[in-house]
Each structure stands twice: as C-alpha cells, then as structure tokens.
C-alpha cells in the first residue's frame, strides 16, 4: 500500500482478522448509544414496576409466591424482545448489502458473526436481566420474599440469561441459514409460545424446554426452575438448563460454520 508508512498496521490474522474493529463497533452499538439505557428503562419499567404492584398493592398476596411471579415477568417477555432485536441482525445486513461491504474489508466471516453474537449477548444480559434483576433483588428482599442468598439469586439470573441466549442464538442462526425475514422472526416466536402446547401434549418435554426455566411445567410437577434455584430448593430437573446450554453452543457453531460459505 502506497503512502501508509506513518500508520501502525492491524496485525490480526486468520479468524481474528477484523475482530477487534467489529467488536468495537458491535459494543458501541449498545453502550455508546441510547440503546443500553432505553432497554434498561423498558425492562425495569415492565419487570420492576409490575413486581412492585404485585408485592405491595395486591390484596392477600402470598409473599412466598413472589419469586414465581418475578420469574414469569422476567422470563416470558424479554425473549420476545431478543427475537425482535436479533431478527434483522444478520439477514438485514445480508439483504441490504452492508455484510458484503464489511466483508470486502480484511475481516473474517467468523469475526463478523462473533461481532453479532457477543455484543448482543452481553447487551441483552445486562439490560434485560442484570440491571432489572438487581432492582428486583432489592424489591424482593424488602418484601420478605424467600431468597436463599444473593448467590442463589445470581445463579437464577444466570439461568435467565441462558434463556435469552437460547433465543438470541436461535434467531442468529436462522438469520444465517435463510434470507427470509419472516422465517427468522416467526420460527422463534412460534417456538416461544408453542412450548406450552408441546408440554400439554408431551409432559416429558419439561425436562428439555426452556419454558420451564421461568414458568411452571404444570401443576403436577411443581414450580419453575429459576424460582426454585433462587429459593434454594432443588429444582424438579436440571434438564432444561443443560438442554438450553447445549442448544446455545450448537446454534452458535452452526451460525459460524454456515456463514463461511454464504454468498453475499
């Protein structure tokens, strides 16, 4: 390159090529814009506001049920937002041409996908789980909810994060595999809402489906996993946690693998 002698050249090679720049831009999209506080406000508004209403306004509310209520709000709605946020991340860039533009620079396809995965994974975990979760912890403690310890509560939040990452990686993978925006949003949505019917048809699925992380698998089977963990009670099964963790890895690997051959 002529005329570039005054610059320090980027030295990344192989799959790391372009990673630093792409990550920088991915994280900036969350933390150097209004995204982080807008999302935090939305989720604090939804989760903590409703929780406060349940804890302090409801007549005859049994505080022993507080963790289950919290798990429903914190586990049911954020995955929908994650699907909406992620639905355009890869497919939108493929269709608009920005992916082709970025990959005409010295950047690896692995770096491109990782830059979609990591910043969004951190962004949704912080704004949809941890920030509202901290506030919820204070609310639940004040209300006298049966939290075993801050560590138990933190592990519960970690399982919420896995739940979000399940939908995040599923939507990302679909964005890699197809160019149909409709498919990318419809399939995860259908899965998110269809699990309750699947559980009704085949109760054994309670050992796998992410639904049971935050929502009870059915009256006969006890409470959901996260409220049990937060209360220091052994959950009915660790299966969904394992299943969701494996799925996150599989969806991520498939995304990275299939994007290598994508024609842009």
């Amino acid at each position: 390159m002529a005329g570039n002698s005054e610059f320090e050249l980027v030295q990344e090679q192989g799959w790391r090529r372009g990673l630093r720049n792409l990550m920088r831009q991915g994280f900036a999209g969350w933390w150097k814009t209004s995204s982080w506080w807008v999302q935090t406000l939305i989720w604090a508004g939804i989760i903590n506001f409703i929780l406060a209403g349940v804890l302090w306004s409801a007549q005859g509310f049994d505080v022993q049920e507080a963790l289950s209520f919290y798990a429903i709000f914190a586990g049911l709605f954020p995955p929908i937002a994650v699907i909406i946020i992620m639905q355009d991340v890869v497919v939108g860039e493929k269709l608009s041409g920005t992916a082709a533009w970025v990959l005409s620079k010295p950047a690896s396809r692995t770096a491109f996908i990782l830059s979609k995965l990591a910043p969004n994974a951190v962004g949704v975990a912080a704004t949809m789980v941890f920030f509202p979760g901290l506030l919820a912890f204070v609310q639940l403690m004040l209300a006298g909810a049966p939290i075993a310890s801050p560590l138990h509560f933190l592990v519960g939040l970690g399982i919420f994060v896995l739940n979000l990452w399940f939908y995040l990686t599923l939507t990302l993978m679909l964005g890699v595999l197809t160019n149909s925006r409709a498919a990318v949003i419809a399939i995860p949505m259908a899965f998110a809402f269809g699990q309750q019917y699947l559980l009704g048809m085949a109760p054994v699925l309670r050992h796998f489906l992410p639904w049971t992380l935050s929502l009870p698998p059915g009256e006969a089977f006890g409470g959901a996993i996260v409220p049990s963990v937060m209360a220091g009670v052994v959950p009915f099964s660790w299966g969904p946690v394992i299943f969701v963790s494996v799925c996150i890895i599989v969806f991520s690997v498939v995304s990275l693998w299939r994007f290598q051959d994508q024609e842009l």
């Binding site: 610059f7 320090e8 720049n21 920088r24 999209g29 814009t33 041409g97 533009w101 620079k105 950047a107």
Partner: peptide, 26 residues
C-alpha cells in the same frame, strides 16, 4: 459496491473511521 450500503446510524466520519480501522490501528 454498485449501490453502496453503509450502517445508516453511523456518521460520515464514523463510516470512514470504521473502514480505516480494518487496516490501521493508529
């Protein structure tokens, strides 16, 4: 590209800065 498409929320400066940092770090 034939129909250049950049990140719409980027400014002109940010677009050039983003491009340049694929090649140079300082």
């Amino acid at each position: 590209p034939q129909e250049p498409r950049f990140y719409e929320h980027h400014t002109v400066w940010e677009t050039l800065d983003f491009t340049l940092r694929f090649f140079f770090k300082g």
